[in-house]
Amino acid sequence: MATEKKISYEGARDELAQVVQSLESGGATLEESLKLWERGEELAKICQEWLDGARQKLDSAKPAGK
């Protein structure tokens, strides 16, 4: 899952919002729903990785004593 690093944070976040909306609207078949859910989990993980990485970078670059 984590192999898909090409997608940008915004790309992943917007797609995740779409996935959630599709799932909530309930129009999809079960098979489609399962695929959407898996995709949603994947996208959430990508978003989290971006945010964790950003936070980590920020912490390590933080001026000493601050």
């Binding site: 976040r13 919002a17 959630v20 859910w37 949603g40 959430a44 989290q48 945010l51 920020l58």
Partner: peptide, 26 residues
């Protein structure tokens, strides 16, 4: 980063993602 974390959390906390079993149980 905090703002975006909140946005992602808000999305992942939706029932469809937090408890995907509803997809089946429903």
């Amino acid at each position: 980063i905090e703002l975006e974390s909140a946005r992602v959390l808000q999305l992942t906390q939706r029932p469809v993602l937090r408890d995907p079993l509803v997809l089946v149980t429903s």
